[in-house]
Design a protein around this nucleic acid. Structure first.
Lengths: 355, 355
DNA sequence: CTGAAAGCGCTTACAG
DNA sequence: CTGAAAGCGCTTACAG
């Protein structure tokens, strides 16, 4: 790739003159400029962004440490992050956090060496070790964590109104007359803890408790969720509604119900959380809470860029970590229906009309 | 972040000495080295990778222009690409191709400025314009295209054995006795064209032709696929099997069948192509062709790195574009079954035994 | 063993 | 209007 020096040689001028001409600054003879621009174009000159990074101390690059881009939630998030970065002309250096942790690769060292301007941490499956948290704190550039608050006390955070979301689901099920409610929860992550709390409290307000045998933990992958869902649904009696930690788990619950010959929603209502694209396309379509995942990612990118640009200014207001939670919306679809016993005790004709 | 210069000041030596000490080269007094390493550690020194990029002309960075990371196919591919780059310690600068094209952003300019070592082009929804193809050819670094051969004549390519894959599906359906076969195809992409050809030829060998009314184009998003699937399935008579361009389209076909009260697989067999994780978890589980998508991405990354390292050597063998197609495997699951009329005309008892 | 010099590609004052 | 000088952070010969 041609350099300014080469252009300078060709045009028989000095490098500073080329620099001025190409960066459109005044003090250059129009004819000289003309010639320089023409040569630059002809040889397809591209300024070297690495140099800008060195000189300005800004690379216009943000590292994104993402876990599981290969699942719908993660990839929706990435899409939003990319869009947010794109708006402000930042580029994205993408890392697979978990893979790197497994390998012992020190992502933070790498992104330190590459002088990225900031970091978006889309939390890992395996939470960072104490070591890693230490490293994170030693990374003296803005960090925004996304979705999980594992480190929200230290860093900026963008996530979802998990509590209100789950509350909406609980109320929806109560309104449908469900009293026998099962729960597939995930307490290894902060969102799971928050959602469980909201669910339990909202049900308790109506005097409903989830029996221990209908409450089971899931750890994230399909097989496990499927097994746990099957375990709940094989019991007698079984719940009339199954609240799932997220849409993923709900899909496993669908499969478990299908394999057990349980009809959704006639025999069993199922709810998710996220509103991934799949939620609308599966059948029956999934009742869930819309997190607007891409929007969360986009907001995270925007927040990070704000922090980066703030840090640029010397008036250094002490960087109080911000915490942003985006609102949610209950999306009622075909996977939830009146509780079976209600249907049985009520006139079927009445039911038809109201459903 | 501390620099070599600052370390040199602190240790009261010259910058070259610091450089030698830190890069572990001999000619340094052990005591001096000791002191330098200690200070470097204390101030958490990290070499500036941008400098290496400038000096060596290698940034150890690969740009990935990806379309639709937010869908399962794209994100599986990305996962594989990341893994492949990671193996050789390359990092990934990620771009959303379609978004950029829409904005008129010249990705190639940006990645030129950032001096990436190569480019993986995971093809866009909207194929690149002639302008873009021109730009691509002007990008004098290795390019590997993935999945779609829109530019395979110019660049290295990694994809899937689409023809044999679709042939396996066709044979599978023939073996199940299907003669009434519908098809949702996508001829806007090269994979779609190849698959159609294989399907048509294989069926023709058995004297079967897909009627025009059972053959409809889809363009990629759910709504459209759903509409087209519904159009085919609403006809009378309708096919006993529906071959879908890919798993995505198959999911839309499931939804259409469900909404029309058509039971899969009893009334209708459906096939996909890709074997996304969802294919195994949906119900009935989807009969499809396993493309091993992450493996394709990983191979693409490996090929690109080979090309990059070859280009490094001055013995410049003329760079003949390579084309690699990874093998596929038919995965038979619950979405395909004996054709209904066969079931009807054959002894049910016999059928039970043979299924 | 150590450091002055030149260079990577560029920008920014500052003389002329 | 133009270019010599210094600098960004580092490496590579090459004197001493």
């Amino acid at each position: 790739m041609i350099s300014m020096k080469q252009i300078a040689n060709i045009c028989d001028v000095s490098v500073p003159t080329v620099s001025k001409a190409l960066s459109n600054r005044p003090a250059v003879n129009p004819q000289t400029r003309q010639r320089i621009l023409q040569v630059a174009k002809q040889f397809n000159y591209r300024p070297n962004a690495l140099i800008h990074g060195i000189q300005r101390g800004r690379t216009m690059t943000v590292a994104v440490a993402c876990n599981r881009i290969d699942d719908p939630f993660g990839s929706q998030m990435m899409q939003g992050i990319l869009a947010g970065l794109h708006e402000s002309r930042y580029e994205c250096l993408l890392f697979n956090w978990d893979q790197s942790v497994r390998d012992g690769t020190r992502i933070l060292q790498i992104i330190g060496e590459r002088r990225v301007d900031g970091l978006i941490l889309f939390p890992p499956e395996e939470l960072p070790t104490a070591d890693y948290m230490e490293e994170l704190r030693a990374f003296h550039r803005p960090i925004v964590t996304v979705d999980q608050t594992f480190a929200a006390q230290d860093f900026d955070f963008v996530g979802t109104e998990d509590g209100p979301g789950m509350q909406a689901i609980a109320q929806h099920l109560l309104e449908l007359g469900h009293q026998q409610i099962g729960h597939l929860y995930n307490h290894t992550v902060s969102t799971g803890q928050t959602r469980t709390q909201a669910l339990v409290e909202t049900l308790a307000d109506s005097g409903i408790v989830i029996p221990r045998v209908w409450s089971r933990p899931v750890i994230g992958h399909f097989e496990d969720s499927y097994t746990q869902a099957s375990a709940i649904l094989s019991q007698n009696p079984r719940p009339t509604a199954l609240v799932c930690f997220n849409d993923h788990v709900a899909m496993a619950a669908y499969a478990a119900a299908y394999d057990l010959g349980i009809n959704v929603p006639r025999d069993l209502s199922i709810t998710g959380f996220a509103d991934l694209p799949e939620a609308a396309t599966m059948r029956p379509a999934l009742t869930t809470v819309n997190q607007n995942v891409p929007r969360v990612g986009q907001r995270a990118a925007q927040l990070l860029i704000e922090k980066i640009e703030q840090a640029q200014q010397p008036k250094s207001t002490p960087p109080e970590p911000q915490s942003i939670r985006l609102p949610v919306e209950l999306i009622v679809r075909g996977s939830t229906e009146q509780a079976p016993q209600i249907k049985n005790t009520t006139s079927p004709i009445l039911m038809k009309g109201s459903s």
